[in-house]
């Protein structure tokens, strides 16, 4: 599968093939940038439930998956959407009402955990969080961890530096590897075999991608087979990691995609209002996700004028002078 020549498929099919109720999933992007939103919306449309979600600092994608009732457990460093929601609203509500279980890590720890998964080692060390409640308090109780095969028995382990103080550290924190069943990322360019080129910041997408058993890539541009073979030092993910490629222009909308479009402040503000109220949020889910066929349906609903407004300016890669109030 990973060596196939042509992995292009529909989003519907990719989600049906790789996302099961209760599976362990991770999504790329960071707060309001390059979240694989089209994939998030398709997961919601397919009514997937009981997901175990892994993210570092995710915003919009996480909040919509939680709000739609897809998520049972989450391991996370940060749930926020920048100025639009300092704390993700449905995430906040779900934790306060006890409808999801949360395990807190730091951003670096989550990133190292994905890297450990990508490297095939059981853990990696860091000096972050020593002395804090991130170590002392476990969101997932020990009994639950021991009972679940797909979870390590411990959240974190503090250990004396086995190299006797080498590098000036007396203690290290060991963070356990993550191997998601499936990771979804959205990239600027991919070819039919799955070679990927991201532009701007990569966040932890590369580690999330390489840690996963299955990787689904959605892309702004689907390019010819030879295109990414030129200047291939600009590629981050070679095709051997990829299971499916889906071409979806505006696949990160309403979050941003560097060099293509900005986040849509109108959308994110309206979302924040709807998310605060159960009735409005249900109406939002219906009108913006469940009754639409695909991402193109969402773009049609929003209208070309708004899409035009967020188009990236070629000099800066974002929509300069966009009204973001």
């Amino acid at each position: 599968m990973k060596l196939a020549n042509d992995k292009v498929t529909s989003l519907k099919k990719a989600v049906t093939s790789f996302v099961r109720n209760g599976c362990h999933l991770s999504i790329g992007g960071f707060t309001i940038n390059r979240n694989p939103m089209a994939a998030v919306y398709e997961i919601i449309r397919q009514n997937i439930t009981g997901l175990h979600l892994y993210v570092h600092s995710n915003g919009q994608g996480v909040d919509e998956l939680i709000g739609a009732g897809c998520v049972a457990k989450i391991e996370i460093a940060y749930g926020g959407s920048g100025k639009f929601a300092a704390t993700c609203i449905r995430f906040k509500k779900a934790v306060q009402e006890g409808t999801i279980q949360v395990e807190d890590y730091s951003n670096y720890q989550m990133t190292l955990r994905f890297l450990a998964g990508a490297m095939g080692v059981p853990f990696l060390p860091t000096r972050s969080s020593l002395g804090t409640d991130i170590i002392a308090k476990w969101g997932f109780p020990a009994a639950m961890r021991c009972a679940e095969e797909k979870l390590p028995d411990q959240k974190l382990i503090v250990m004396d530096n086995p190299f006797n103080g080498w590098s000036g550290a007396d203690k290290v924190v060991l963070v356990p590897a993550i191997t998601p069943d499936v990771t979804f990322i959205h990239v600027q360019k991919a070819d039919r075999r799955g070679n990927c080129r991201m532009q701007g910041l990569t966040f932890a997408d590369v580690e999330q991608a390489k840690a996963a058993r299955h990787l689904v890539v959605t892309c702004e541009e689907l390019v010819d087979d030879d295109a990414l073979r030129k200047n291939s030092e600009q590629n981050q993910i070679p095709f051997i990691h990829v299971d499916a490629v889906v071409h979806i222009p505006y696949g990160a909308y309403p979050t941003a995609c560097y060099n293509h479009y900005d986040y849509d402040p109108v959308y994110l503000k309206a979302y924040a209002i709807a998310a605060k109220n159960d009735r409005l949020f249900k109406a939002y889910l219906d009108s913006h996700i469940l009754t639409l066929a695909d991402q193109q349906g969402l773009l049609d609903l929003v209208g070309s004028e708004r899409i035009e407004r967020i188009k990236a300016d070629p000099r800066t890669g974002y929509a300069a002078d966009l009204d973001r109030r």
């Binding site: 996370i76 460093a77 926020g80 704390t87 906040k92 934790v95 807190d104 730091s106 951003n107 969080s129």
Partner: peptide
Amino acid sequence: TRFSGSGGGCD
């Protein structure tokens, strides 16, 4: 009340 969490703050 739940807040965003550490993000990179703890690091």
